[in-house]
Design a protein around this nucleic acid. Sequence first.
DNA 1: CCTACCGATCGGTAGG
DNA 2: CCTACCGATCGGTAGG
Lengths: 250, 250
Amino acid sequence: MVGRMQHDPGAEAPAVSESAARLLDGALELFFEQGARATTVRQITSSCGLTPGAFYNHFESKEELLYQLIRTSHDRLERSVSVAQAAADGEPAAELDAIIRVYVERHARRRKSARIATRDYIVLTGDLYEEIVAVRRRLRERLIDVVQAGQRQGVFRLATGVDAAPTLTAVALLDMCIQVAEWYHEGHGMSPEDLASHYIRLARRMVGVAEQDDEPAAGPGPSARRGAPVNGHRNGDADPSAHIRERLAE
Amino acid sequence: MVGRMQHDPGAEAPAVSESAARLLDGALELFFEQGARATTVRQITSSCGLTPGAFYNHFESKEELLYQLIRTSHDRLERSVSVAQAAADGEPAAELDAIIRVYVERHARRRKSARIATRDYIVLTGDLYEEIVAVRRRLRERLIDVVQAGQRQGVFRLATGVDAAPTLTAVALLDMCIQVAEWYHEGHGMSPEDLASHYIRLARRMVGVAEQDDEPAAGPGPSARRGAPVNGHRNGDADPSAHIRERLAE
DNA sequence: CCTACCGATCGGTAGG
DNA sequence: CCTACCGATCGGTAGG
């Protein structure tokens, strides 16, 4: 029933045994579709052709499996952001671009684990919950710092009117990027790279950076990534209504 | 067994009996904290001091109650948007301001019902689901139309690079406004009006409208928007849960 | 990894 | 005839 349509085995999840990896994959699919709370252990095991008792050979509880998924997703996001930002060499405008690109591409490519991370971390309890909250707070502070640095250096000109402008602007930026995981779907003709490039343009405007006509750089990274073609995209059918149907058909 | 599927657009809540209203209030709180799927009928009834069986004197099923909450929330949003946009007199920049203000203020003031509407409409099935999808599609098209009109009239200058720029920009706008319901609480010391004003400034930049230093108008304030609740009691949209309070603490 | 269970609780309904 | 419940229980399922 549940296949590995989302990602390569082990690519997102920690290195574990074959059965544990299959359980993680099945849970990923079910959590994405139903939410972690509404998903039963029996649903997870039967998606792998196992009986309920087998679950507890690999995980202490449903919550531990959920924590592994969410922790891994957050860690990978934080690591990617850290690497990309480091390559921006302390320049706020380049750091902003880098962070937005990582967020958008990740929430498009890994939309299932990304959405679970966003929606279901509240289900965690005690220290597990606190750990995730800490990661999320660090990620938010990172962007707030970039926005504040840009404003301080005169590179950004934030919208005025409230004291908390840097924080509010950073939150709005993160929120619009995070929501990509709610509606993005391959097949509507826009690659994660192109989408990220558009969001970078929006982000630059939101912080008031001098408008640049140059294509937003398709992000650095450990492995060279191909640039995002600005005019060479192959969407002859950027049909808005189709786009909407995709999103709402979730 | 009354046809409670009928709703009253613009009303604070469907006109129902005292107990039904309390059940709706209790469900609102529980759905907000746990999600509709993870909330049991017994939790809802005991939150009102009732026994489980009493639930079915008022609602055919848990899904019917969920539908009422979500339908009402969507209808009120659509109605507010419609009224506010109409007052903008066909000017895209004013229409954009009006729509953003309605979204932000509503997702801040009525954050519980707004968040349930956003997160749990997927739980609905069959025609109930399709009805909500239709409302959401209309709301989306409304903003896309405004963005396209502004671009056509030369009032907006969208970020270029993709064919679907109007749709993508509208989606990003709605997403950042909708997310306000995820983190807003009154402890921030920022009123819904001030928050909306900031988001309007961000929105204007995103669509490339000529920068205006003037304060975004605090809404035409059609009396319907702040009218008294029809049934004389408020839905429990105050008192954020500790979970969410922690999310943006500090 | 399966079968067999536990304490409790699920959504929903019975007659009074 | 209506409302607002009650104690008890339906067939199944929950995490462990």
